[in-house]
Design a protein around this nucleic acid. Structure first.
Length: 326
DNA sequence: ATGGTTTTTACTGCGTC
DNA sequence: GACGCGGTAAAAACCAT
């Protein structure tokens, strides 16, 4: 039950380990027959794996994931494919419902007669009403709008918005909303999503673009993380570095050096329990000194929202850690 | 509610430009 | 004298129990 709260930075090991796991998916062509040791071949047509030597059926009912039709040229392939636009969680109906175009034009691009135009107006109106009929749908629609707005204000990629949408949907479907504001849950979903996607924004930053105050945001965030059992690993300090560096107009060199410092510190274990944002800020500062691209503590403090005192403390520790390591 | 840890606030002294 | 920096003490915030 740790790691679910905002500020449990302790278990630093997190990611990095799981990434290198699925490397070599064994090529299943090299299976040998358990009976005679002969080569096993795939018989796609019958969905079986058969031993080429003795005919033993090693595996039945394989699934053919390919299309069931055949195409002999590009045109036929286009015709027979039945795939459309991908669904997206970013729209409240996953982009599956019908929209009636807003232009009063028919399929040939001609303008509509006035009676036709009025008819289309009515159809549009009703279509819209049905589309967002019940309260949950409307709720969702508004929340996704909010998520969209905040995400773009924070410059978060689509992936994060998608994830945030998914989290929000889950919260909604598990009835976590009553008693909590849409804003709050939307904000929390976005914050969690940003962290899960390795592009974290600090609580302050998120709170700044949200319409709710910070206290409520944190409360709500804790709540939904707990209720949804979201796995949000402590943010990696390094993931803040590039953003801060660019906000301070520092060259790549500083960024690289900052990463090294953080790596060393992590080895030393001095990062455990400390605020990732603080560490990132300190790393930037320390790195700027080491690379002769000096920025002042207060400048770093300004863009990172970390107090100068914290920067001082952290950067001493960072330097010590690298001294010892080097 | 409480205690332990971390961060922030506020303030002071030192050296430099 | 303003500024950047380092340090300290007390307050506040936070997490866990």
């Amino acid at each position: 039950m740790s790691d679910t709260t905002i500020r449990t930075y302790s278990s630093d090991r997190q990611q990095t380990e799981t990434e290198t796991e699925s490397e070599v998916e064994s090529t299943d062509e090299t299976i040998t027959c358990p009976e005679c040791g002969g080569r096993v071949v795939n018989d796609e047509e019958h969905g079986e794996s058969v031993c080429a030597e003795c005919g033993l059926v090693v595996e039945e009912d394989g699934i053919d994931r390919g299309p069931e039709w055949r195409a002999f040229d590009a045109k036929e392939k286009d015709n027979k494919s039945r795939v459309g636009a991908p669904t997206t969680n970013m729209m409240h109906d996953k982009g599956l419902s019908t929209n009636i175009g807003w232009q009063d034009k028919d399929a040939y691009g001609n303008s509509l007669s006035s009676s036709q135009r009025q008819k289309m107006q009515r159809l549009r109106k009703w279509n819209e009403r049905f589309r967002t009929r019940n309260s949950k749908e409307r709720n969702l629609k508004q929340a996704l709008g909010e998520i969209e707005r905040m995400a773009s204000a924070l410059g978060l990629p689509k992936k994060v918005r998608e994830t945030a949408s998914v989290i929000y949907r889950r919260a909604l479907s598990e009835d976590l909303l009553p008693g909590r504001s849409i804003e709050g849950v939307a904000t929390s979903a976005l914050y969690a999503a940003a962290r899960q996607m390795q592009t974290p924004r600090s609580i302050d930053e998120v709170a700044n673009v949200s319409r709710i105050d910070e206290m409520e945001f944190k409360r709500t965030y804790r709540y939904i993380v707990r209720e949804l059992g979201l796995e949000v690993a402590p943010a990696d300090p390094a993931s803040y570095v590039p953003r801060f560096a660019s906000e301070l107009d520092l060259p790549d060199e500083v960024e690289r050096r900052a990463r090294e410092l953080l790596d060393n510190a992590k080895e030393d274990g001095v990062t455990s329990g400390k605020s990732p944002v603080g560490l990132a800020a300190a790393a930037i500062y320390a790195s700027s000194l080491l690379t002769n691209h000096k920025v002042t503590q207060s400048e770093v403090s300004d863009v990172t929202d970390v107090s100068e005192v914290t920067i001082r403390n952290r950067y001493q520790e960072l330097l010590e850690a690298t001294e010892v390591a080097a």
